[in-house]
Structures are given as structure tokens and as C-alpha cells.
């Protein structure tokens, strides 16, 4: 036994105060504390306190909605690193990407992750939609969340598409040329839509800055907002669970 009783140690009390100020509850050793943990923690309160056992079986959701969200976060973080090096100018962009690949420490792996996670997210979001359809999870009261989901799918595609141009290599410029040529075919508004998108008649500096702004600010914000509503609705409509 030490001279001072443990409870009286000012350091322990101080640590306890810091812990208590951050988490507002002890370790979740009982259901009650576990429930309070989920209720009072900002990052966990997105969840209901209790969930149906059948709803969280991996075989039910296949983790696809969650994985889509996880990839969105991963893309935000890796994208942030890429932004430190990338300048949206047609004179510099390509060299910036080369530098990322060959000069910046871990630049190559970060760029690869950003690329593969973007492809991955298109796939997981699409599969998530398919699982929701096959389980009839879009039926009342979840009709509107399916509509939000459709917008999320579109946002995901546009995010991927706008990012495609940024490396300013042959692949990028010509894929965007082919892609935006499709917009041309809309009756009446087609050519204007394309002009608006490219900020000109060809894929040049005007297009690069537009795609850049859409890719790093506008679309992520729209996507984030839609996700917030999507998750809110999953909570409020209740999660389907078991067929």
C-alpha cells in the first residue's frame, strides 16, 4: 500500500476529470452504460441505441452502405493530401502528378489509394443499391430515402468523373472529351450544357478549373449533405432487418 490512498491522488483525479469531460460515462461494461455511450457520443449517436440482431448480420447488408461511407472518408483524407501538391493549371498539373509519383514521400501510394478507392466506391454504391432493391427496402416508409440514394449514386459518379480530368494526361483529357460530348446530344440545351461544363468549346484550362472546383468543393459538399440526410432517414424510418 502506498502512503496516499489511490482516490486521493491528485493526478488520478485530474485524469479522471479529463476522461469524464470527454466521454461523460465510464467504460461500457453494462448494457445501460453501453446505451449511454451510444447516446451521448457525437460520433456514435448516428446509431440507434439498440439494433435488431438480424439487421446487423453481415450477410444482410453485406456492409455495402457502410463501406461506401468508409470509402468516402478515405477519399476525403487521401484527397486532402493530394491537394497539398496539386495545382489546377494545365501547365503544372501533369508535372504535379509526376512529382507525387516520384518525388513526394508516399505520394504514389496516396494517389493510388485515391484512385482505387474512387473506383471501389462506384462499385460499392451500386451494389448497395442492388441489395436495397432485392430486399425491397425501398418500400414505405423508405421511398424518399431511396430517392436520396439515387442522388447519392449520381453524385458519386460525378465525383469520379470530375476527378478523372485532373491528372491532365491523355487518358484524362480524352475520356472527358468523350464524356462531355454525350451532353451535346440533348435537344436544344445540349451544346450549352457542354459549354457550361467545360467553360469553353474544348477541354482546356477553363474545363480544368471547373472540374477541380466541382471535384474538391461542390460535389463533396453535396455528397456529404445528402449522406447526412440519408443516415438521418435510415434512423427515422427504422432499419428494415430480416425478411
Amino acid at each position: 500500500m502506498s502512503a496516499t490512498p489511490r482516490e486521493a491522488s491528485p493526478i488520478r483525479a485530474f485524469v479522471a476529470q479529463i476522461w469524464g469531460s470527454i466521454f461523460r460515462h465510464g467504460l461500457p461494461t453494462t448494457d445501460k452504460v453501453a446505451a449511454r455511450t451510444a447516446l451521448t457520443n457525437f460520433f456514435l449517436h448516428i446509431h440507434p441505441v439498440r439494433v435488431k440482431k438480424s439487421a446487423i448480420r453481415v450477410s444482410y447488408t453485406l456492409c455495402l452502405g457502410g463501406l461506401s461511407f468508409f470509402l468516402f472518408i478515405l477519399l476525403t483524407i487521401t484527397g486532402l493530401f493530394l491537394m497539398f501538391y496539386y495545382i489546377p493549371s494545365i501547365d503544372q498539373a501533369y508535372q504535379n502528378i509526376k512529382d507525387l509519383q516520384f518525388v513526394a514521400t508516399f505520394g504514389l501510394v496516396i494517389r493510388n489509394m485515391h484512385r482505387w478507392a474512387a473506383h471501389g466506391m462506384v462499385i460499392t454504391v451500386w451494389l448497395h443499391m442492388a441489395r436495397v432493391f432485392y430486399q425491397g427496402a425501398y418500400k414505405p416508409p423508405r421511398e424518399f430515402n431511396w430517392a436520396i440514394g439515387t442522388l447519392l449514386l449520381l453524385t458519386t459518379l460525378l465525383l469520379s468523373f470530375s476527378g478523372y480530368l485532373l491528372p491532365w494526361d491523355q487518358l484524362a483529357v480524352w475520356a472527358i472529351t468523350v464524356g462531355t460530348n454525350m451532353a451535346k446530344y440533348a435537344p436544344l440545351v445540349g451544346p450549352y450544357t457542354r459549354y457550361l461544363l467545360l467553360g469553353g468549346r474544348t477541354v482546356a484550362q477553363g474545363a480544368l478549373i471547373r472540374f477541380y472546383v466541382l471535384h474538391v468543393i461542390a460535389l463533396p459538399l453535396i455528397g456529404f449533405l445528402l449522406m447526412v440526410v440519408h443516415f438521418w432517414r435510415v434512423r427515422k424510418d427504422g432499419f428494415t432487418g430480416g425478411l
Binding site: A34, A35, H47, P48, R50, K52, K53, I56, G242
Partner: peptide, 8 residues
């Protein structure tokens, strides 16, 4: 249906 606490 049977439920479990979300956390953990």
C-alpha cells in the same frame, strides 16, 4: 425480434 446494444 431480438435486439442487441449497438455499442459495442
Amino acid at each position: 425480434e431480438e435486439t442487441v446494444v449497438t455499442f459495442p
